[in-house]
Each structure stands twice: as C-alpha cells, then as structure tokens.
C-alpha cells in the first residue's frame, strides 16, 4: 500500500471519529438525564426526603423540638360544624415505618348535592420531625403542588393554623380553601373537599383550628 493511501485512510478515520465524538457530546433538545430506567430497586427514603425538604424549605418549619403528644382519636361528634356529615369509611395504613396514617371519609347529602370531606391524620409516636416528614409525603411530594409552593405571593406566610400549613382552592367557583394541609406537633393533617363541589357551610380553616386545638389538648407522651 502506498504511503499516500495510508495517510488518506488515517485522515478519513480521524474525521469519522471526531464527528462521532462531537455528535455524542452535543447537548441540546431531546437529550435528557437518566434516559435508562433504573436496573432495580425503589426510590429511597433518603432521596425522597431530601428532594421534598429542599422544595419546601423544610428546615425553616416551626415547631421542631416540640412535645410529642398522645395520638388524637378523631371523633365526628367532637365537631358541631360537621353536623349532618356521616362516616363513609375509616382506614389505617402504615407510613414508611414512621407511623400510621388514618384516612377518614365523610359525606353530607343536602338536597341534590353530595359534599365530601377526606381527612388524613398521620401520627408519629416518636417525634415532631417525623410527623413533618409525613406531611411531606401525604400532602406535598405526592402531588405536584410542591412545585408551586414557592410561587405564593406571600411566600413564607401561612393560614396561621399549625406549626406549618398551607391551603389551596381546588374548586373553580370557590374562594375559601377547599384543601388544607398542616402539621401540629407530632400529628400531620390533610383535609380535602374534592374537586366537584365544596360545602358552602363548611369553613375548612375554622375546622383546622378546632382539630389543632384537639391535638394540642392531648397529654405529652
């Protein structure tokens, strides 16, 4: 083989190699991190917690180091403002080894309307911090709302109900919160009136305050 042909071959190979490298490194539309699914395993608790904490400035939440109180056992009859509501279901399930979540579904029929209210009460037997992490999972990281919490006009303010709380209007025609998430001491609480129609006679923020009062009335463990 002539020297000139060898040089030509080397030049061509170099060009092809350079083009390949350039193409593989080119950032731009269509390229995403993590384009392969994980080989196995589930999302780790640490990853989840870190992600959720960062999004909502978890370290600034009030109440850390507060007293660990006995579990508040929700009773419908404790709340006159829930008169007319009936218990649809009451389920308990574990939360990531941190405690138990109790889900209570209530409904009230009024003429042709059916109003619903879902309460989730998460209780940690060991610490306020754990209950605050439960709120992360129950109300924040399990919906898309975390993305928008930092867009609140009065970022850092709250409904003034619990150690940490926020409300939202999830129904088109309403202006009062139809959804409230809060944590008080070692109990996390979520209240949700659904998406169809909200009970015009139910003040969810006032109900939140009453629930917080019941939580605070429990003896210290």
């Amino acid at each position: 083989m002539k020297l000139r042909s060898v040089r030509q071959l080397l030049k061509t190979s170099l060009l092809v190699l350079s083009a390949a490298v350039l193409c593989s490194c080119r950032p731009g539309p269509g390229r995403l991190q993590g384009e392969s699914p994980p080989a196995s395993g589930v999302v780790t608790e640490e990853e989840f917690t870190a992600r959720a904490r960062e999004n909502v400035a978890f370290d600034t939440w009030q109440g850390k180091g507060g007293a660990v109180l006995a579990k508040y056992d929700f009773q419908l009859t404790d709340f006159p403002r829930l008169a007319g509501y009936r218990l649809e279901s009451r389920d308990r399930f574990p939360y990531e080894g941190k405690g138990m979540i109790e889900e209570i579904r209530l409904s009230r029929a009024d003429g042709g309307a059916l109003y619903t209210l879902r309460l989730q009460l998460g209780h940690s037997t060991t610490s306020v911090e754990e209950a605050q992490e439960m709120l992360l999972g129950m109300a924040i990281a399990s919906s898309q709302i975390a993305t928008f919490l930092d867009l609140r006009p009065n970022s850092g303010s709250s409904l003034g109900v619990g150690d940490y709380d926020f409300g939202a209007v999830f129904i088109d025609s309403e202006v009062e919160p139809t959804y409230v998430a809060l944590v008080q001491n070692n109990t996390a609480c979520l209240m949700d009136q659904g998406r169809e129609v909200a009970d015009p006679g139910l003040d969810l923020v006032a109900l939140s305050r009453e629930i917080v009062a019941r939580i605070l009335a429990q003896p210290t463990l």
Binding site: E45, F93, I101, I145, Y179
Partner: peptide, 16 residues
C-alpha cells in the same frame, strides 16, 4: 385544579 393530588393512592412515594 388540585395540582395532581392523588385520588386513590396514599402514603409516601416508595411505598404507596
């Protein structure tokens, strides 16, 4: 309207 709030799942992320 609810920012993708769960309707039938509950709990945390890695174990719903």
């Amino acid at each position: 309207l609810g920012f993708g709030t769960r309707g039938y799942t509950a709990g945390a992320i890695r174990a719903v």
